[in-house]
């Protein structure tokens, strides 16, 4: 089992690397002079031919493509993601500096939404088709019909700013991360509740639940001891996918909350066309996704005796 997981993860890692390479290729292959693009990124619109030639020399842009690639790739393997076009600093260092706030907020959001999901789903199933279930269903329908950023925007403006509920701050601390994490968590939880509620209901309708009831077990006992552990698999997969969605959506989320994480960093790079930063973001997001998927796979394997057994 472990071998299968490791193999799958290595494969996913290779795919992530391949994706990064393809993204690297877009720049030299895109129409227009790469050197000129770099000058534009640095805010110089009318670079002279001399300046362009000097830059090409410096960046190795006049080397044949395979050689450029080799250079970039060797650097990459040594953990060197290049220098930012705009700041001139190493991209990796900048990234690592921006990573903690993002991880803080996303981690907190995942935690909060997992808790909310489990609590609200259990509540919905216990009161199946009665008013708590219906209120929860309405809430999940609304989050499903609103894109994350719109939900965040409305929650921020109406609840936080409008009703003076919480405060908008730009300093990075756990308390400051709480408000955005709570909003993002609530949005994520909507979809997860639909998933967990459905699988809990399916488990409760399963024949083993019927047999347990026929032995005199209470609904709550079956729900907590049997249905919940058996329903975690789809939830875990959804959490894994959400890590990806949140990494991808980070620029949007951080723009709304003025949160100084990697998303904001990417956004400034996007407007400046700072290619090394964009490439680095692709690589880091893809690797983060691979790690999340691996953790989810391990958790699922640990939960299921039928999968665990294969390992021994």
């Amino acid at each position: 089992m472990l071998a299968v997981l490791v193999k799958r993860t290595i494969q996913a890692g290779l795919s992530a690397l391949a994706a990064t390479i393809i993204v690297w290729l877009i720049l030299p292959l895109a129409p227009g002079d790469p050197a000129n693009r770099i000058f534009i990124a640095r805010g110089i619109d009318d670079a002279t031919e001399g300046q362009l030639a000097a830059l090409r020399q410096e960046m190795g842009l006049n080397l044949p493509l395979p050689q450029q690639f080799l250079r970039w790739f060797t650097d990459l393997m040594h953990g060197d993601l290049g220098l930012s076009f705009t700041t001139g600093r190493p991209v990796l260092q900048d990234f690592l500096g921006h990573l903690p706030p993002t991880l803080m907020m996303l981690g907190l959001a995942l935690l909060l939404s997992t808790l909310a999901t489990i609590l609200l789903s259990l509540l919905a199933v216990m009161y199946h088709n009665r008013w708590p279930d219906k209120v929860i269903a309405l809430y999940t329908e609304i989050t499903a019909a609103l894109p994350t950023f719109v939900f965040a925007l409305l929650a921020l403006n109406y609840v936080v700013v409008g009703w003076q509920f919480g405060r908008v701050i730009a300093d990075v601390s756990w308390t400051a991360a709480l408000m955005p994490a709570f909003i993002i968590g609530l949005d994520r939880a909507g979809g997860w509740i639909q998933l967990l509620r459905a699988s809990l209901l399916a488990e409760m309708a399963d024949s083993y639940a019927f047999v347990a009831k026929s032995r005199g077990a209470s609904d709550i006992r079956i729900l907590l001891r049997h249905a919940l552990p058996n329903s975690l698999k789809p939830l875990l997969s959804a959490i894994g996918l959400s890590v990806g969605a949140l990494l991808g959506g980070a620029p949007l989320i951080e723009a709304i909350f003025s949160w100084p994480g990697v998303g904001s960093y990417l956004l400034s790079a996007l407007t400046a066309r700072d290619y090394p930063v964009i490439q680095a973001y692709v690589l880091i997001a893809a690797l983060g996704y691979v790690v999340a998927a691996f953790l989810v796979d391990v958790a699922i394997a640990m939960l299921d005796p039928r999968l665990r057994e294969v390992r021994t």
């Binding site: 083993y208 047999v211 026929s214």
Partner: peptide, 24 residues
């Protein structure tokens, strides 16, 4: 009901594997 089920009325289901929680 819960004091009758399992105590005074027992139930045996169709599929023995289906009667058990697969993870226990």
């Amino acid at each position: 009901w819960r004091q009758i089920r399992g105590v005074e009325i027992g139930y045996v289901s169709q599929n023995p594997w289906g009667a058990c929680d697969p993870r226990r």
